[in-house]
Each structure stands twice: as C-alpha cells, then as structure tokens.
Simulated scan of single mutants.
Amino acid sequence: MPTSACDYIDEKFEKELQNLPPVAALPPLDKRPVFWLGEKKFAGGAKFDYLYIKDDFGVWLRYEDSDSDDFLLQKDMPERYYGYDEIDRSPDERWVSRELGYYSYGIYDISLFKNEAKIFSQTAYKVVRKFIGFFNLHSMRGTSFAAPQGTEENLNAISELQTPLADFPQKQNYSALGPAYKSEAEGYVGDEIAKKLARNTFEIKGEGWQQTVRVNSLAKDTKVVCGDEICLALAFDESKVNGCDNGAASTTIYTLNLKQKFRDFYMLPSKNFKYAKISDNFTLDDVKSFEIILSKFRDLGGLDKGSEYIDYEVILRNGEGEQVNEICRNQTEKVGDRTQ
C-alpha cells in the first residue's frame, strides 16, 4: 500500500501549503440532496459518488465514474437541497507532473448553498503525491493531503451531505460489451430508433421500464438505435477525424446494456468503434439498423503493427440494407470472416 515513505515529496512546496492560515470548520448540517452548480462535468474538490443537475428538463442524476451520461429522475426540485459550486483554478496537469513532480495538484474555490443561500466558501488545495516505491513506466498515485489545515475535514463533511432522491444504484454498473476475444462474446443486432427529445437526449425502453438518458457529447448530432439487449449511441462530430484515411468526420460509438436501468452509455476501447466513420455518400440520418459481429483484424500502426486480433465489427445499415459506415483503413484492416 502507498505510504509517504514511498512518495515523491517536495518539502518546500508542501511546507508553503501547510503554512497557509487554517480555515473555519463547516458547521454541522443535515443530509440533503446535493446539486452540482459547477461548469465542469463533475466536482473535483469535494468527493461524490453522484450529483444532481437541474435544467429545463428536470432533475438529472450524474455518476462520478460515468459523467458521459445523465439520467432524468423527476421534474421538480426537492423542497430542501444543497447547491455545490467550485471554480477550478488548478495548474496544467502536464506542468504538475513534469515541473512540480506530483501526480495531481488541484486548486478549487468551493461554495456551498442551502437552497439558494450561500452558507460556506473557501479555497481548497488538493495534492496527490507520486508513488515512486518501485520502477514503473507509468506514474502511480501516492498519498494525498488537502490544505490549508481543516480543509480535509470540510471536504469530507460536504461529501457526506449527499443523500439519494430516488431508488437507484449508488455505484454505477458498467455496461460495455465484454472483450471480443473471450468465449462468451457474442454479436448483436438492432433496428429500433430511440425517441429523440433533444440533440443528445433520448427515451430508452428496457424490459418493463423506460428512462430518459442524456449523452454528454459535444458532437453536432447524435442518434440512438436499440435492439433487444443493447443500444448504440452514435455521435457524429464533424470537428474530429481520428486519423481516418480520407479525412471524413468520425462517429464515436457508445453501447448501452438494456438489462437494467441506470446503466451508462460506454465507449468501448475498440479500434473499430473508435475509428468508425460514415461513408461519404451517407449521413447519420441514413442509419436505420446496426449489426455487431466478431471478426479478425490486422493492426496497421503503432507498437502492434502487423498483429492480428479478434474484435467487434460494427455495421450500420440504411433502410435498403446498404452499409453506410466503414472503418478507417489506415488504422486496421479486416483479414478474416466472422469468428464463431
């Protein structure tokens, strides 16, 4: 387990933080739902497993480990709640690692509101040391501390205020397809277009339940197509090409498992999902169905150049059954038929 004996420590830097004037303690408060008021997707100062967001649609749930999705819970605000806001003034992450020598260093101007009234504010400094106990090609997290004195206690007290508004899993269940090379991997099909409420907001129907889900993508347009077991969210972004061979806009593909509510849309770490694109003669509107099969591919670049592997192949079709997408061929190429 990491200990300070195995951490990188800059004594001058840490002493400067420890010498900051102590902060006042947060007064004792009752538990209430905590709403996120910050500009980023999720809080970085106080630690939460989930937060609530309010907008014109209603009250949304957002998990810490799945901030790419929001789940609509209800229309109206509760009578009693807290608002949590923070302004992130953290230095650049690369500078922190390269020049300061730490794993992370966050500076947050935090504020807590009881309904609309501000009741507490302070600047919090959060440091995670770099673990250097043994040789490793990647930086590892070491021990952490918060400054000034009293900050750790205040951040913990704010985190402990959160309470559920509805019955939902308080830890997100990942819903990605399993690794394609495993024996239980299988293919999927779907042709039901999910009802679209806004550019990135959809009604998703499972077995005996319905849920409004928002995909937090900045893509110009999104579309969700569902089958019996999974849905695909297709995010069409003309500003990104992801190394496609002819410079065409890429389509980021997310998967959603329909076995349970409050599952997240999850982007698979698959090259064939990451480097998919809509062919030049088609648009996202043309997509009417999908098919996911297992195929053999060859890597065309990087450390694994030339190696073969089994992966998911995503085929998007229009109403006439024509394939409307392709994989960027300067990244991978298909070398085998479907693997059973």
Rank of each mutant, 00 (worst) to 15 (best):
M1K: 13
P2K: 10
S4V: 15
F13M: 12
L20R: 10
P28I: 10
R32F: 04
G38Q: 03
E39W: 04
G45M: 11
G45C: 11
K47P: 05
F48W: 15
Y52I: 02
F57K: 15
G58C: 06
S66T: 00
K75L: 05
M77F: 01
R80C: 05
Y84L: 02
I87N: 07
R89M: 15
S90L: 02
E93T: 10
R94L: 09
R98S: 11
S111E: 15
K118V: 13
S121N: 08
A124K: 13
Y125E: 14
K126F: 06
V127H: 03
N136K: 01
L137I: 09
M140Q: 12
N154K: 05
S159I: 05
L161S: 01
L161F: 01
A166Y: 04
F168T: 08
F168G: 01
Y174G: 07
K182M: 15
G190L: 10
I193E: 11
A194Y: 07
A194I: 07
G206R: 07
E207P: 07
E207K: 14
Q210G: 14
T212P: 11
S217C: 02
L218E: 11
A219T: 06
K220I: 06
K220P: 08
D221E: 15
V224W: 08
C226N: 12
A235F: 03
A235L: 05
L258Q: 10
K259G: 14
K261E: 07
P269C: 12
P269M: 12
F273Q: 07
D280T: 08
T283Q: 09
D285Q: 03
D285N: 09
E291R: 11
K296A: 08
G302D: 01
I310R: 13
N318E: 06
N325P: 02
E326L: 04
Q331W: 01
T332H: 02
